[in-house]
Write a protein that binds this DNA or RNA. Sequence first.
DNA 1: GTCTATAGGGAGATAGAC
DNA 2: GTCTATCTCCCTATAGAC
Lengths: 197, 197
Amino acid sequence: MIVGMTTGTATRPRTPRGQGRARLLAAAGDLFAEQGVSGTSLQSIADRLGVTKAAVYHQFASKDEIVIAVAEPVIDRLRAIADAATSGSAEQKRAVVVEGLVDLALAERGTAAILRRDPTMAQLLDSHAPYLEQIARINALLLGPNPSAEQRIALAFAGGGIMALGALPGLDGPPEDVRAGLVAAMTRALTIERDPS
Amino acid sequence: MIVGMTTGTATRPRTPRGQGRARLLAAAGDLFAEQGVSGTSLQSIADRLGVTKAAVYHQFASKDEIVIAVAEPVIDRLRAIADAATSGSAEQKRAVVVEGLVDLALAERGTAAILRRDPTMAQLLDSHAPYLEQIARINALLLGPNPSAEQRIALAFAGGGIMALGALPGLDGPPEDVRAGLVAAMTRALTIERDPS
DNA sequence: GTCTATAGGGAGATAGAC
DNA sequence: GTCTATCTCCCTATAGAC
């Protein structure tokens, strides 16, 4: 789909196989999660990799570029989640999305949480169309057709909760149980019972 | 290059009884919420107040002191919430806490969210006994006696959700409806139905 | 209480050698 | 791809005048 290797690579500052790039992004993501984006200097990223700042600037033109690149895999997963919810009833689609978001939050706890928690990241993503697009798709799937105000409020609550899994108590135990518990909690939060009138 | 209005009006004539301090903390809290703690310089706080950095240092010895001072009113409210849940059944206590947290999140949306979202703030509070104490009380009240693993997981989800109310859709509308919707959503998330065996 | 001035260091970013 | 060296700017914090 999105491959740009057809043209010549004479002076392109990209790592062949992109291994140095991946290593850098992993280190940056960890540091962003620990100290926030603003609290993380390029020097500290370079230190963790055992190189100098100039080596970092060889792969990324600016700090903002690193921040966006860290967010990209998460955005890709959001897109995959929305893509997976194409068939079935509104309830079935919602179940697929809820499970996908829980898996995402658990797989990249820390890194995934940055997207919603970090102010710098949030400001950058606010003008990053690919992110906004996937969030809109996810929200639409979770809300279903003709959402009520109450449903929108429940979404605001649940959307924050799933990504804010930090150093909170109770996330130990068998991964399957944790996953099932989170899916159940988020589903409950989003499920508004009809008033039997 | 000093830029600004030197009109010398009566807008800020004198500061009786720590009013300057309160003004400073309000400005700092707003900026922390917008840009994060690390992303906010003492210069920008001073700019918003129309004074110089030195004037800020006259009231607080360090930036960390400001950060803690911004958190203190929120910690006080957490303490008040726990204090208010002293009588009644476990369910009644939990209802009081849920409503208190929703009111807190709505009253200081932005500022209250910093406590859970900002990495710098989190690191400072991690060794701030008063904060840890109130969080422990709140968690105990929400979990009730003999909490199951499932309940702990639901708490991790709900605790993050209530404080992470950011620029999400659906938080417009009558304040009473928003409050009721959030209370209902958080209560649902925390309510695990007994297995009818 | 507020100011000017400055110390001392770290930030992001660039140039050019190897 | 990585380095050394350097630029410029901003940061926290302090000293001392008014």
